[in-house]
Every structure is written in structure tokens, then in C-alpha cells.
Design a protein around this nucleic acid. Structure first.
Lengths: 214, 214, 214, 214
DNA sequence: GATGAATGAGCTTTCATTCAT
DNA sequence: AATGAATGAAAGCTCATTCAT
């Protein structure tokens, strides 16, 4: 958020992925998609580069023309997914300003990700949390960004007198992320389908009003 | 059996480890502990059995005297941890009957697990969610058990007229588990320490009353 | 395919290797040859893949580029040897029709195998009979084929009134195979060299006329 | 035959195994039997000492109280089997003097070994021929002894004018051993049962009279 | 004599990565 | 740009043998 001028964000939004510094290229994308699919099916460490290449319809060596390493493929896929999420949320915030509606939108987009691309959702659930070593550090960065957005919304709501002031915005933000992510996780792994919008409403109802009988 | 002094057995009895069907044994436990430590540090797939054995102070082959495979070591460690959690909760429920207090106790024990054994908490955060292949299936069983306990408490609260009846106990249960697990995760990975009891109170406050200004 | 000069292919055609369904390839053959040599020297279970690879002048992993497993290497070598034997016999039968001469030819080719490729002969003597588990089942198939060919010759001889009718073709076939194989075995292990043609004649003389003084 | 005085043989025969330099002992024999069974089932290299010990009902370490090594167990079992065979033949030769009957007796005892102890027969078929390295050298010694006995019978028959003089006693001896061993092998592996005496007669008929129509 | 827990060398196999073509 | 054959390090696991009890 900080390093980029608002104009730059707008431009990127308008242009889609065109100005991304990485070479898009047909095969580039095919490798990314294949990697997510294969890793979702077998897990990162059981997904040989050769299997990813085969799924993408390229030679093993070609993967290394587009990516530095196997790590790099997964990292890039996760990065792009987080970025898309983040961009989508920021975009919407330019139209919707009510903190409650903003939180609901975040919940909705988060929950929708399970049906938009199930393989990616599985990867996000399994591989992002994993291996404190090589993924965690960088994916932590994205998590933090998500949490920060939510915290800012909460704080704005508190300033506007909509939300209680006697609660920690950090705790609430983590609770909200965790609650939604767990619902998503449960749905993705059991293969259940659900209505993202309706589920988002339910979660927000609990978060906003609690479960105590009024 | 031989390596333990009778006193140790008595202590184990007191500690509630008695019904475990597996032979404790000095090395058995050392291998389990070492595995959790090494896997927490490097991740399951980057933790060679040789490293686990070295950490436990035994020969590589000795690991296979106590466990069928590398998988089996991790599985056992996770099983035992889940079981301890579950036992602890069930025990307390015999004294505490108020649904709100029960939920708070679950939250507290869940959050405490991060400080009781940080390595284990990391493993639970990283490896349990992972590799849909070989862990997920069995760890899913434990998750389900956790969720079930919470759902039952919610339902009881609804029957007693304490909780709102217009909400899904499943959604609430997943939200609660997710919220707490995310808080724990965040604290464990950033290395922050926190007061489990106080944090549990905060989470329950949000869950019960929501964040809307009354 | 690439490593072979066209001339080599033509030579292979002449040599009757053409119908083999497996990709010949330079390294493929080198690995097979190396495997037979090393296994002849040390026995299958004392011949590490690394030793075979080293003898073939390739990296350990390369063996698995051409063969599914260590088993597969040995199995393939034995298969090819049996097939060559069988093909050679069948071919000759199109010119030679006298049952006695046919048996003599089989004996001769069988005995020649010891001098053509001593390592292979040793492998056939030691490993084929061995390990009821993984070799026996498949090599039994080849043995049966050999025996069948001999039985058919015997039966034809009986029908033509050349051979006695009061003897079991099965017993005679096994006797003949066993007798020749034992002679070969003895020669191979003691390192004695012999004249295959002359020895074949002697064996057939005994088989046809017996050792009783007329 | 040569190194031992007749008296020594007679004494050994009379005394059974009592003066054998190895400690008989109950467990000693149980280990030998168990080894033969397990090795027959799984092959030498797939038969762990622990499995042999378990089958024998003793601890792993106990095997090493009676034998120097795993090799030694197998070697001893094979030795004893060969010796029993040899002793049985020599004994009978003191009553039966006709070369034809002697050969027939050898064939019969050889063929009977399949039904007397199938596991041992399998071991003799699979492991004796194997691994030029550690078994072959010593088992060669026994083979040679067998062949020598047969050769002497043949030569005696030639001297007595019963057998043809224009054939090599060595070739005939190997042929006879090989023929019988192959019949035995075939029967043992296919699990067929047969009449040893009748089969011995058939083999000798072929060997003595040949298969040519008179 | 008897045990069986412990050892650690050694095995087969996989796979990320390179590089000649 | 693209290939895919080749590499070799590294992993999980087995098991003959030892030795303290």
C-alpha cells in the first residue's frame, strides 16, 4: 500500500496484469496453473517438477526458463492470488464506505475464492501455512496485509462510533480472518458447496452482534 | 517398562497418561519430542529421520524400533496432543456446566497450548493442515471432534435460552475454532507471548456480544 | 535412437535384434551388459545398483531412466537372453526337420551360450533358479517354453516312429534340459572350455542310445 | 571316499549324529529347521535372521550362540543334507552291487528328497546354485562328491562290460545328476507329487536304453 | 546359556536442476 | 526459446550383528 502511489494502483487495476514485471507469456501462465493443480492434488513435496511440466504441456527444463526454482513457481502463484484478492478489495472500497459493508465484502470475496479456483484454495489452505522455512516467511507478509486492511476498517468503525471501543482491533481482525478461513477450509476439504454471500452475512452477523440472546 | 522407575509410573498415572495404549518407554518419548522439535524447525519433509534420531540421541534405526515409519512418528505425536486436549476439556466439563464458561475454557486451553509446547503448536499449525494426502485424512478426524464438542455446547446454550436460536451452531463452531486458532497461529509465528486466560476472555466477549456498539 | 549410426541399425537388423520391442539405445544396452557382469560376479543381492551404474559408466539415477527398478534390469536381461535362444532355435527348425538333429541343435545352442557370454551363463545358472519370489515366477515361463519345444520334438519323433513310444515326452524333455544345463553349469563354474558341438553330440548319443552295452 | 577309512564311515553310520563336532542341542536343530523353512519361503536374502529366530522360537541373539553368522546357518543345513544323502547311498552300496541298481537307488533317493522335506528341497534348488560368492564354492564340493560317486559306478559298470565303453563317465554322470535334479526341481516348484521309485525307474530306463526305437 | 534393544552401514529409489543440442 | 537426457545428492528404511543384562 505504502510504496505505491494511488495512481499506480489505479493504472495496474485498469491494465489488468499487463504491466506486471514478470513475462506473462502463454507458457508462464500454463505452468503456474499446472503447478497449483498438481500441488493441490499431491502436496508441494510430492509434486515433482516433471509432473507440473507435464501437466502444463512443456518440457521439464522449460519450467526453469520462467522460474528460478520449484519454490519460485509456488511463491509466484501464491503472490498473484493474494494480490488479486487485495486488489479486488481495494477497488471495491472506493465505492463502498460503510465499515460493516466493507467487512462483509472482504468475507464474501474470501469465501468466494473456494469456488472460483478450488485448487488454489487448497494450496492456500495447505501449503501457505506450511514449512515455516520457505513459505511462511513470505506468506506471512500477505497475511499481515490482510489483517491490516481489516484492522483499519475496524478502527474507522470505532472512530465513527459504529463499533465498540473497548475491544482490540487486532484481536477482532485475527478472529474475523480465522473464522472465515476455517469455514472456507472446512468447505473446501469436505467438498461442500455453499453460498458465499449468504455465509458472509452469517459470519458478519455473529461478529457484529454476538451469539448471546439479546 | 524396565527403564522407568516405579515412581515415574505413579507420576504418569497421576498425570492422566495411564490409558495410553502405546508403550511409553524412555526412548519412545524422546523420539516423539525430538520429532516435534525438528519438524517444527524444518517442516516434515525437510526433517530427515537422521536429524530426528540425532536430536533424540539414538541411532537412526532405533526410530524404526518404536515406530513403523516417519509418518507414524508425526501421526502419533499429533494424536497424543489432540487426545490430551480433548481429555482435558472433557474432564473440566464435569465441573463447569455453564455453556459460556465451557466455551471460554476451550478457548483458554487451546490458546495455552502455544506456550505449553511451542514446537508442538507450530507442528499443529503447519503440518496438520498440510499434505491432503497422508496427514489430512486422519487429522480431519480430530478437528471434527473438536468442532463437535463446541457445537454441542452451542446447542445446549440455545436450548437453555442463553444463545440466539437464529444462528447455525456449525457456523459458530467453525468461527470460534478458526478465530482462536488464528490468534494462536499469529502469536506462535511472531513469537509474541500473551495471557491465554485474558485472550480467551476477549475472544469470548466478541463471540458472545459482537463488536457492534450496543 | 540418436546415438546410433544408421550402419549400426542395419547391422542390428542383420543380427536379428530388430523385433525387440524395447528401445535399444547406447546406454540401455550398456546398463544391461554391466548388470549381467556385476550380478554374475557378486550375485543379485550383493550387486548394488551403484556398482552396475559405475560399470556401465553412467550415474546411478540413469539406470532408472531406462528401467523401472533393479529387478527390471535383471528381468529384461534374462528375457532377452531366453528370447534370443528361442528365436535361434525356431529359425533353425525351418531348415532342419529331423527330430534327432533338432534335439542336437537345441543342445548345441544351449551349450554354446556358456562361451558366447560367460557372465550371462552364470546369471542364468545362479539367479534364474533363485529367489522363488521375484524371478522364479517369470523365468518359469521361459523354462516351460523350452521344455515345450523339446516335448513337441519328442512327440513328433514318436509319431514318426523314430523314438520309443513307451516313454513320457515330459520326463525325457526335463531329462534332456537338465542334463545339458548341468554340463553347462559345471563347465561355466569350473571355467573349463569345451567344444559345444562335440559335447552336444555326446549328450544326444546317450539320450538316444543309452549307456547299456548294446 | 578316499580320505576316510571304511571303519570311520561305519562308525559314523552306527553312531548317527552323536559324534558330530557341533553341539546338537534342542535349539540348534530348531534353528536349522526354521532357517530352511523361512529361506525356502522367502529366499536367503529376504529371510531376516529375526524371522528365522522367531520361527525357531528363540531370541535373535541366540542364533549367534550356535552359529557364526547367517551364512553359517544355511551352510550347515546344506552340509547336513548332503551328508545325509551321501551316507544313505554309501550304506546301501554295501548291500547292492549291481551298477544299474546302484544308479537307480541314487536316482530314487535324490527324487525322494523332494517329498521327505520340501523346504529343504527348495533350498537346495534355489540357494545352492546361487551367489557364486559365498555358497557356490562350498556347495560345489558336495556336487563334486555326488558326481564322483556316480562316475565310479559308471566306470565299474564299464569295467564289468555292462555299460558302453565309448562314452565319457563324466558326461554321463553330469547328465544323470542334471536330469534327475531338473525333474525334482520341476516337481518341487509346481507342487506336483510323484512316485519317486517309479520316476527313478523311468529315468534309468532312458539313461540305460535311450529313446531311439530299438 | 539366553535375551532382545540398539546399532549404523548400506541399500534402492526419487527428483530438482543443468546443459548440450 | 525449448528440450529432455543425465546427473548425483539425499532420503527412508532394513537387518546382520553385538553386548549389557
Amino acid at each position: 500500500m505504502k510504496p505505491e502511489a494511488p495512481g499506480a494502483i489505479a493504472a495496474a487495476v485498469d491494465a489488468g496484469e499487463v504491466f506486471s514485471p514478470v513475462p506473462p507469456g502463454e507458457k508462464y501462465q500454463r505452468i503456474l496453473d499446472a503447478a497449483v493443480e498438481v500441488i493441490a492434488e499431491k502436496g508441494y513435496f510430492n509434486a515433482p517438477v516433471s509432473a507440473i511440466a507435464a501437466r502444463a504441456g512443456v518440457a521439464d527444463g522449460t519450467v526453469y526458463l520462467y522460474f528460478k526454482s520449484k519454490d519460485d513457481v509456488l511463491r509466484t502463484a501464491i503472490d498473484r492470488n493474494f494480490d488479486r484478492f487485495h486488489r479486488q478489495v481495494i477497488e471495491r472500497f472506493q465505492e463502498v464506505h460503510d465499515p460493516r459493508e466493507q467487512l462483509e465484502y472482504i468475507a464474501q470475496v474470501h469465501l468466494e475464492s473456494g469456488s472460483v479456483n478450488r485448487a488454489m484454495a487448497i494450496v492456500m489452505q495447505t501449503e501457505v501455512r506450511q514449512s515455516a522455512q520457505f513459505i511462511a516467511e513470505f506468506s506471512h507478509h500477505h497475511l499481515v496485509k490482510y489483517i491490516q486492511v481489516v484492522r483499519e476498517v475496524i478502527r474507522r468503525g470505532q472512530q465513527q462510533g459504529i463499533f465498540r471501543q473497548d475491544i482490540s482491533d487486532g484481536v477482532v481482525a485475527h478472529c474475523m480472518f480465522g473464522a472465515i478461513d476455517e469455514l472456507l477450509s472446512s468447505a473446501v476439504f469436505t467438498g461442500r458447496s455453499y453460498d458465499a454471500k449468504a455465509t458472509a452475512k452469517q459470519v458478519l452477523d455473529v461478529l457484529l452482534n454476538g451469539i448471546n440472546r439479546a
